Simulated scan of single mutants.
Amino acid sequence: MTTDNEEEKSSRPKKTDAYESRCFGLVGGVALLADLKTLVNAGYVRKSDGPFYCRACLSEAIVRKCSDKEDHFAHKALVTPTGQNKDTAFHHGVRDELFGILKERFPLGNWKTEVKIVDESLGTFIPDIAGYFGERNKAFPAVAVEVQLSPYSPSYIRKKTTFYAKKNIHVLWVVPLTRPLEKAVFRPRRYELYLHSMYLGYVFYYEPDKNGLLTPVHYGPAMRYIEPKTFFDENAEEQHVGNFYLKYKTLKEPKTGDEVFLADAVAKISGAWENPNNKRLNLPERKIMVTPQKRWWEKDENKQWLKENDWVAYARKYLPQYEPDDDYMGEEAEDEQ
């Protein structure tokens, strides 16, 4: 007999995977085989029966056989090498490196680390680095540099950005890397996706010892090619499918822009925007520091994919849970700014 406590324990890994991957396609313990048609249960397959794929987001899945938990599938995807949440030494190392560069470039900018900024009505926030891109006067923007290592929620990032904007401070969010970002398809974390929206289509990454050169990365759509297939259906009628692309929901293709020197970032004011799919992902009116480079990706990246209509019929018949769109990737936000 299974107790309530045991049931909760066995469902915990599935709930954790669904949260981290932003997809509930594997929660029922069911995945697709490589043909993207055959459904299998985690309790009746072996690892050698794979590869397996999520029926909602199409990313690769792994089967986990557990002695004390129910067999289940989990999403498998490469994530950015951002270091551990509690790696204080790494965080402080990147912070101090950027601080030294800004202090040298703008010696009259009154640069400080971990300085409290207080507002009676808005509260208190402590930016990693704060100062002026120039002298300490109204002719130059006040800037807060945030070395984003902790996986903050979108609501906290929104609250902090709103605070800075009301204090007339431009914020520069930087995600530090422990090694170079690979060019392979990967799954951005929740806070990375929100920063991507905040900056109208890219995230600033930084590798230590790069002398202040930030790398802006756009998350382009990642596609999976469906091979042409011919088969007979249940009515013995010949069917032809394939030869088109299906878009992954949560996996993205990194598209790197030109490196920009930290001190060459420019001030920009962007208006608020409401996400039509998820209000928790709304963007506040914000003051940010951005790259001077123009857009390096196509404005309508899904245009070619949407031209092909065969995928619609295929998805309706074989992938009823397929979800090609991610709530975090609001393309309308860029057009409205």
Score class of each variant (00 low, 15 high):
Pro107Asn: 12
Val203Arg: 00
Cys66Val: 07
Val143Lys: 05
Pro81Phe: 05
Arg316Thr: 02
Ala263Ile: 03
His218Ala: 12
Glu120Ala: 10
Glu192Ser: 02
Phe73Tyr: 05
Pro154Phe: 01
Asp119Met: 11
Gly25Glu: 03
Ala165Cys: 10
Tyr314Ala: 07
Gln337Ser: 05
Asp128Pro: 05
Phe244Trp: 10
Asn41Phe: 03
Glu114Phe: 06
Val79Asn: 07
Ser21Arg: 01
Ala142Met: 11
Pro13Ser: 09
Ala77His: 04
Val290Asp: 07
Ala89Gly: 11
Phe140Glu: 04
Ala31Thr: 05
Pro176Leu: 10
Leu181Asn: 04
Asn282Trp: 03
His240Val: 03
Val203Ile: 07
Ala89Lys: 13
Gly43Trp: 08
Ser67Gly: 08
Ser59Glu: 11
Phe261Arg: 14
Lys76Trp: 04
Leu251Phe: 04
Asp258Ala: 15
Pro216Met: 05
Gly220Glu: 13
Thr250Gln: 09
Phe106Val: 03
Asp258Phe: 03
Val143Gly: 04
Gly109Tyr: 00
Gln304Phe: 06
Gly83Ala: 08
Gln239Pro: 01
Val241Ser: 06
Lys76Cys: 10
Val185Cys: 05
His218Thr: 03
Pro292Gly: 07
Leu246Cys: 14
Ser155Thr: 06
Lys255Gly: 05
Glu301Met: 12
Ala74Met: 06
Glu192Ala: 02
Glu182Tyr: 06
Cys66Tyr: 08
Ala61Leu: 09
Thr178Trp: 04
Ala74Glu: 06
Glu234Tyr: 10
Glu135Cys: 11
Val312Trp: 11
Lys103Met: 10
Lys47Gly: 15
Gly131Trp: 00
Glu114Trp: 09
